[in-house]
Amino acid sequence: MASDVCMSLQDVTISYGSFEAVKNVYMDLPKGKVTAFIGPSGCGKSTVLRALNRMNDLIPGCSLKGRVIFDQHDLYDKRVDPVEVRRRIGMVFQKPNPFPKSIYENIAFGARINGYKGDMDELVERSLRKAAVWDECKDKLKESGFSLSGGQQQRLCIARAIATEPEVILMDEPCSALDPISTLKIEETMHELKRSYTIMIVTHNMQQAVRVADMTAFFNAEAVEGGSGKVGYLVEFNETENIFNSPSQQSTLDYVSGRFG
């Protein structure tokens, strides 16, 4: 069992300043699977996702208690270099954010700064193919990444994340800014990608979770006594089928059946 765990969160509490955004999360994220994080806005699911590759370090005042174990190391150990963490755990963001460079350079950038020595042309093609955007891009590799449509840009960003050959890919609502057809293409891409990578995805779209995820974690938020605002917590984490068909918690049932705010 232990070898199947990719990342393990142990009593993780994340705060912005003195405000606790999400509290006491225990989770074992399985390797080689797609795990979806669902839940209402403000429940801390994106915060937890960003904690997995230390992206929260970049937000002033954000701090984490507890342990995030990846490859037998605590990611938040003092000796761990956050830059190295992000090389091994890639990220795709909510809004497509290609660099203001050519399509080719968008892919090559990450590989180059990580000291990739192989054939760059081949890597660019392979990454774009894996992200299912090669056909749209192959004739305009020298053009700006912004010349692509939103959906293509997002797949370019996925290709960019793949090019550094990470072990895990985090996706923070990757389809929320896209139309249904682009969304479908990204989801197909994810099915391809999970053969080689572990994927964690935050989504507001429950059908999407059903379509792509093997495992689903449901987060919720509740007001705490004397606190300011709501504090997020993990309600239930199980196989997607169980979460949607036979959840063990009433609040999960309410949420997945749409009877929730």
Binding site: N53, M55, L58, V83, E84, R86, R87, R88, G90, M91, V92, F93, K95, N97, P98, F99, P100, K101, F109, G110, I113, N114, C157, R160, A161, A163, T164
Partner: peptide, 25 residues
């Protein structure tokens, strides 16, 4: 900010992000 995040997300250090992404942008 997304541009910087994108660079950090592929494992760029702050220095590389500034010199190769943020300043050219």
């Amino acid at each position: 900010q997304e541009m910087r995040m994108g660079a950090y997300g592929v494992g760029a250090s702050r220095f590389v992000t500034i010199t190769q992404i943020t300043l050219p942008a």
